[in-house]
C-alpha cells in the first residue's frame, strides 16, 4: 500500500492540502491541481518537458515523488506570470522571438530558462546551451530560445542599470 499522509505544499503562491499523494509530483500537478501546463513526454527524466521549480531549484516533476514534496514551494509555468494570465518578460520574449512552435516543450523550456536567469544574470551562449540541453524540442525552436533568453538578460541588465522596472524586450 502506498504511503498516504495528508500534506501541504505551496504551488504558484497558493497553499494546497493534498490528501493522498500516491504518484509523482507531475501527477499531482496535472491531475489533482489541474495545472496541465506542465507536460508529460518521456516519464523518465529524458526530455525536460515536466521541469518545475521545487524550492527554487529545477526538478523533473515526472521523477519527483509527490509524497516527498510536503512543505515545499513549487513554481510551474502557470506561476511565471500573473494569475490573470499576464506574462513576465521571459514569456513575452518567447513570443517576440517565436521560441514556441507547437508549444509542447515550452513550459519546461520556460522554467529551465527562468532558473538559468536567476542563477546567471548574464549567461554566455555556452552557459545557455549547457543549462538548456536537457530540454528537448522536436520542432527545433532552439535558436529562437537562445535569442529569447539573451534578449531578456540584456533587457534586465539595462533596466537594472537605469533602475527602472524590468523591461519587455522589443523587436525581432
Amino acid at each position: 500500500m502506498a504511503i498516504s499522509l495528508p500534506m501541504q505544499l505551496t504551488v504558484n503562491g497558493r497553499l494546497h492540502r493534498v490528501a493522498e499523494p500516491q504518484g509523482t509530483l507531475l501527477d499531482l500537478l496535472r491531475d489533482d491541481l489541474a495545472l496541465t501546463g506542465t507536460k508529460l513526454v518521456c516519464d523518465r527524466g529524458e526530455c525536460g518537458a515536466c521541469t518545475v521549480l521545487l524550492d527554487g531549484r529545477t526538478v523533473y516533476a515526472c521523477l519527483t515523488l509527490a509524497a516527498a514534496c510536503d512543505g515545499t514551494t513549487i513554481t510551474t509555468v502557470e506561476g511565471l506570470g500573473g494569475v490573470d494570465g499576464s506574462m513576465n518578460d521571459l514569456q513575452q520574449a518567447f513570443i517576440t522571438h517565436d521560441a514556441a512552435q507547437c508549444g509542447f516543450c515550452t513550459p519546461g523550456q520556460l522554467i529551465a530558462a527562468h532558473d538559468l536567469l536567476v542563477r546567471h544574470a548574464a549567461p554566455s551562449e555556452s552557459e545557455i546551451v549547457a543549462a538548456m540541453s536537457g530540454n528537448l524540442c522536436r520542432c527545433g525552436t532552439y535558436p529562437k530560445i537562445v535569442r529569447a533568453i539573451q534578449a531578456v538578460a540584456a533587457a534586465r541588465h539595462e533596466s537594472s542599470a537605469t533602475s527602472a522596472t524590468p523591461g519587455v524586450p522589443r523587436g525581432a
Binding site: E78, T106, L110
Partner: peptide, 10 residues
C-alpha cells in the same frame, strides 16, 4: 496563439 503556449493555458 503564442500567449496560451507560454502561460501554460494551451
Amino acid at each position: 496563439d503564442a500567449h496560451e503556449k507560454v502561460n501554460g493555458r494551451a
